[in-house]
Write a protein that binds this DNA or RNA. Structure first.
Length: 511
RNA sequence: GCCGCCUUAGCUCAGUCGGUUAGAGCGCUAGAAUGUGGAUCUAGAGGUCCCCUGUUCGAUUCAGGGAGGCGGUACCA
C-alpha cells in the first residue's frame, strides 16, 4: 500500500443500442405522447401499466436456456432461480395482465399503454435496444368491427402527429386468406409457413423477383449472404405472387378462384369435400371491413387493402395492419434509409388462451414511438417544444440578493420561469451571456442607480437581438442597449408578462 | 450472425509515400471593455492519432486480431 495504486478510470460510454435523451428529445416525446393519448382517449380507451420485467415463460414461447439465456431478450435469474426477462413488447404483458385479472375486467376491454421495451439485438437505423412503444388493444371483441376501429385509429394517430394524408398509409389484410391458401396448397408445417410469411413480408423490399426466390430455393443478397427459401412448388409460387400483387379485392378474388380450380378445395373437419379455407377471410374483407371503412369515410388514401401485408409474426390469426411512411427518410448524413413500418398490429385470438385455456379474442396495434420520432426528426417535422429559458435576475450588488430573490419569487408566483444568477456575479457581462445562452426572454437589472429611483431595467433579450441585427460595432451596441427599458419596481411582473416570448409561452401553457 | 465503409482536439474533418514540436474551422477559456448578451480583434487551454499484438532502428501511418460507429442483410419469439 506504500505506492499509489493506479486508479481505475472507467471510460464514459454507453452500451450499444442505448442512448441518453436530451431535454429537446424529452419534450418532443412528451408532445408526441400527448397527441397519441388524446386520439386513443377519444376512441374510448383507458390506460393500464405493467412492469418492465415479466417471468420469461409469460412472454411467449421463448424460454431462456442455459446456453443462450439472452438471445433476443435480456433475461436474468431471480434469487429463486426463476427466469425473468425485460419485456420485448407490450402485447405479451397485456395478455398476461388480462389473463390474471380476467374476472375483474369488463369486456370488451379497450386499453392503451405506453412504455419502454427492450430487445437484445443489433440496433439499426432508428432502432435501439431500448425503445418506446404506444399500444392500444381491444380484448374480448371477436368481430372485424374491432379491427376496423384499430386501423382507423392508427390513421387518425398519424395525422394527429402531423403526418399529412398521403405521407402515410395504413395497409390492412386478413391472415385468414393467406392461412387458407397455405392450407389449400398443403403447407401445414410451422417452419415452412413462417418462411412463406417472411418471404411475402419482403415484397415491397425485394420486389417480385426477390420474393419468388425466397418462396422457392432461396435468395443470395448483394453481400453474398444466402437466405434459405420456403421450397414451394413453382406453380404455387406464381399464384402467391399473383395474390400478393392484387391491388383490389376483386383481383384477389379472381386469383383465389384460380387456386380453387387447381386444388379443388380441401376436405374440412366435418368431412366436407371441396371446402375453400380462404373464403371466410375474403368475406370478412368484402362484406364487413370494407363497408365499415366506406361508411366512416376512410378511403384508400388512408387505409388500403394490401394482400402483401402479412407481418412476420405467427401469432396473428385474422386482420393485420401496418402503418407505413410513404416519403423517403434520410439520416443526418444525407443517406437514404430503409425505414420500414412505424407501427403495426393485428388480431391475436390465441395469445390469452395460452394462460387461461379458454378463447379470448383480442386485436391491437403498436406504434414505435422512438422510430417515428427519428423519422420526424430527420424530416425536421418534429415539434421539439422549445420553450424560453428562465428570466434571469442579475446580481449587481451582493448585499441585495434578498431583494433579487424576492423578484424571482414574484415572477414564479405569476407562473414565469425565473432564477437569480448563481454564478460568480463579479463580471456582469457573464450574467447576460448566461441568460443569452439559456435562451432567456429577459434579464432584470437593478443596481444602486435603479434602486434609488425605485425602478428596474428589463432587458428583452429576444427582441433586443432582432433590433440589433444591424449594429456592427460594439460601442453602438453597448450604448443603444437594444431591447432594454425601465419600469417601476412594482410593475416588474406585469411588464415581464407583456414580453412576446413570455406571453406566448404563458398562453401555450394554459390548459 | 454475415458483408461493406469508417474511427485523428469538445464537434466536423485535413494530414503523415514509416521519422524529430500532428494541423484547420467551429466551439471553449481569458483579455481588449471592472454596469450590458451579439459581431470584431488578441492570447490560451485542449491529443493514448480507438485498443492489443506483430514487422521495423523507429508505427498515428504497414500487417494480423479485437472493440465501437454507420449502412446493408439475416433474425425479431
Amino acid at each position: 500500500m506504500a505506492k499509489k495504486q493506479k486508479k481505475f478510470k472507467p471510460k464514459a460510454r454507453l452500451p450499444r443500442g442505448f442512448g441518453d435523451r436530451s431535454s429537446a428529445d424529452i419534450k418532443a416525446t412528451d408532445i408526441m405522447l400527448a397527441k397519441i393519448r388524446q386520439v386513443y382517449e377519444l376512441y374510448g380507451f383507458d390506460p393500464v401499466e405493467t412492469p418492465f420485467f415479466e417471468y420469461s415463460d409469460a412472454m411467449g414461447k421463448f424460454l431462456p436456456d442455459t446456453d443462450r439465456p439472452n438471445a433476443g431478450v435480456f433475461s436474468l435469474q431471480d434469487d429463486d432461480e426463476q427466469w425473468m426477462s425485460l419485456r420485448y413488447d407490450l402485447t405479451a404483458p397485456l395478455a398476461r395482465h388480462v389473463a390474471q385479472n380476467i374476472n375483474q375486467i369488463t369486456m370488451p376491454y379497450r386499453t392503451y399503454r405506453q412504455g419502454w421495451v427492450f430487445r437484445n439485438e443489433k440496433p439499426g437505423p432508428g432502432r435501439f435496444r431500448q425503445f418506446m412503444q404506444f399500444d392500444a388493444d381491444i380484448v374480448g371483441a371477436p368481430g372485424v368491427a374491432a379491427d376496423a376501429e384499430m386501423a382507423m385509429m392508427m390513421a387518425d394517430t398519424m395525422e394527429a402527429l402531423g403526418i399529412k394524408r398521403g405521407d402515410y398509409v395504413i395497409r390492412v389484410n386478413n391472415r385468414k386468406v393467406l392461412d387458407g391458401v397455405l392450407e389449400a396448397i398443403g403447407v401445414t408445417e410451422e417452419a415452412q409457413k413462417l418462411s412463406v410469411l417472411r418471404a411475402i413480408d419482403k415484397f415491397d423490399k425485394f420486389g417480385e423477383e426477390g420474393v419468388r426466390l425466397l418462396l422457392g430455393k432461396g435468395r443470395k443478397d448483394e453481400s453474398g449472404d444466402f437466405t434459405e427459401g420456403a421450397g414451394l412448388d413453382d406453380r404455387f409460387i406464381g399464384l402467391i405472387i399473383l395474390m400478393i400483387s392484387a391491388t383490389s379485392v376483386t383481383e384477389l378474388w379472381k386469383v383465389l378462384n384460380q387456386f380453387t380450380s387447381i386444388t379443388g378445395g380441401v376436405t374440412n373437419e366435418m368431412g366436407t369435400e371441396g371446402f375453400l379455407p380462404y373464403d371466410d377471410g375474403l368475406y370478412e374483407i368484402i362484406e364487413q371491413l370494407q363497408k365499415l371503412f366506406d361508411a366512416a369515410g376512410y378511403n384508400s388514401d388512408r387505409i388500403r387493402f394490401d394482400p402483401s401485408c402479412v407481418r412476420g409474426l405467427e401469432y396473428y390469426t385474422g386482420m393485420v395492419y401496418e402503418a407505413e411512411l410513404t416519403f423517403d427518410v434520410t439520416n443526418e448524413k444525407g443517406q437514404k434509409v430503409q425505414f420500414g413500418s412505424v407501427g403495426g398490429g393485428g388480431r391475436y385470438d390465441g395469445l390469452i388462451e395460452r394462460f387461461t385455456g379458454q378463447k379470448v379474442p383480442a386485436t391491437g396495434f403498436s406504434i414505435g414511438v422512438s422510430r417515428l420520432m427519428t423519422a420526424l426528426k430527420n424530416l425536421d417535422k418534429l415539434d421539439d417544444g422549445q420553450i424560453p429559458g428562465p428570466v434571469v435576475v442579475c446580481v449587481m450588488d451582493r448585499d441585495q440578493i434578498g431583494e433579487y430573490q424576492k423578484m424571482v419569487a414574484e415572477l414564479r408566483d405569476a407562473g414565469i420561469r425565473a432564477e437569480m444568477y448563481q454564478g460568480n456575479p463579479k463580471n456582469f457581462g457573464k450574467q447576460l451571456q448566461y441568460a443569452d445562452r439559456r435562451n432567456s426572454p429577459a434579464a432584470i437589472i437593478q443596481g444602486s442607480d435603479e434602486r434609488e429611483k425605485g425602478i428596474v431595467q428589463i432587458k428583452d433579450l429576444h427582441e433586443g437581438k432582432k433590433a440589433a441585427a444591424a449594429i456592427a460595432d460594439n460601442e453602438t451596441w453597448k450604448s443603444e442597449r437594444p431591447g432594454q427599458f425601465e419600469v417601476k419596481r412594482d410593475q416588474l411582473v406585469n411588464e415581464i408578462k407583456k414580453l412576446p416570448a413570455v406571453n406566448n409561452w404563458l398562453e401555450g401553457n394554459k390548459v
